[in-house]
Design a protein around this nucleic acid. Structure first.
Lengths: 193, 193
DNA sequence: CGTCTATTTGAATGTACTCAAAAGCGGTGG
DNA sequence: CCACCGCTTTTGAGTACATTCAAATAGACG
């Protein structure tokens, strides 16, 4: 259950076997069936979740009732509403399992404990934040400057696993384009090669 | 010089007079004339800068040579490339003063010192991060779901001071629309009231 | 197998863009 | 202090890209 998490962490910061063992006492395993929710709009996001297995999406619903996917997560990714998690305010996101999934949950308390026991965890956290910052800013840049086709090509080369596993209209939603447009783009790409 | 910074901080976390006094030894004042750069592409962002006076922009240049404004900052805002600051990697941003400006610089060293001396500073930092997270995600949401007109209306109601102070084509650049489109939108808004 | 949902295709529309040129504005030097 | 130059904003015309709405096809799940 903890193998993937441990691999994930030691890639970014070196922890002793003892320290890794300690982590087991802090993370809480949780299973989610397809279509179950980790978080619903209005709830406080008490956990950040590491995905050990499966696939999830975070989305919002706008005034006109449309869903907009904010984030996907598959194995070795983190998911949660960081804002709600940090501030304790209710979340505006829904987080739903797109496949049967296994998560490892970390709450603020657990996080504090880890930081007290394992100084190197700070570095790990910092790297996660950095990567998040980069991905978010790249996304803004893509939204601003790229055509629908470029957005899709960038996405599918960066996250090919997600393209495989997730319904096409959800990818369209993530990219901020209509399902019809994405369908036509894919057709055109297929033809031109 | 430190008045605004102190106000800014005590709004978010309560610090003792002694602690505030200590901050003076850590932040480094810096003046920038209009059109001077705080950071240029390829340099490492060694500081996060608190804007005591003035106005700046952070922008990138894409493959086709176009500028895209990532961020504005006026009094009481922070500016810098957080990724480069945290990771030590070279920045892809340029940060330029749009007016004569006064900054207070904080480097990683200084930040460490503060955290050691002033535990309450952690809370302050957390709140800054939260606000940053919210603003960034709102921006993504706006880019994805809003028309050019809605983007402008949202921006100008949220940051009216910036609309006042910054050339129109830079606002267009920030919103990811052309200057011509923004001009037409503004005309239309003016007519319809 | 049948139903429900996802994807594809078509036609018409609309929003924002490009390119080009005119008008407006501000800063600078004579 | 005014005239000029350069940059910003506005306006116009034509175009491209993506959207909407509608319907047909394909695929998944019970």
């Amino acid at each position: 259950m903890f193998d993937l998490l441990f691999q994930h962490i030691v890639k970014k910061a070196s922890l002793t076997p003892n320290e890794l063992e300690f982590l087991k006492t802090v993370f809480v395993p949780k299973k989610l069936r397809k279509r179950q929710y980790l978080l619903q709009e209005g709830e406080v996001s008490k956990y950040m979740a590491f995905v050990n297995k499966g696939c999830l999406r975070a989305y919002t619903i706008d005034e006109t009732g449309r869903e907009h996917i904010v984030l996907f997560a598959i194995e070795e990714w983190w998911i949660g509403d960081m804002y709600s998690y940090l501030s304790g305010e209710p979340s505006t996101y829904n987080i739903e399992a797109l496949e049967d999934s296994e998560l490892l949950l970390l709450d603020r308390n657990g996080q504090e404990k880890i930081l007290q026991h394992i100084p190197a965890f700070e570095k790990f956290q910092r790297i996660i934040l950095e990567n998040n910052y980069i991905a978010t800013h790249r996304r803004i840049n893509n939204m601003m400057t790229k055509t629908a086709e470029e957005k899709y090509l960038d996405f599918s080369s960066r996250y090919p696993q997600i393209v495989q596993r997730v319904p096409q209209h959800m990818i369209a939603s993530y990219l901020g384009i209509t399902p019809e447009t994405l369908s036509r783009i894919r057709k055109q790409i297929a033809e031109n090669k």
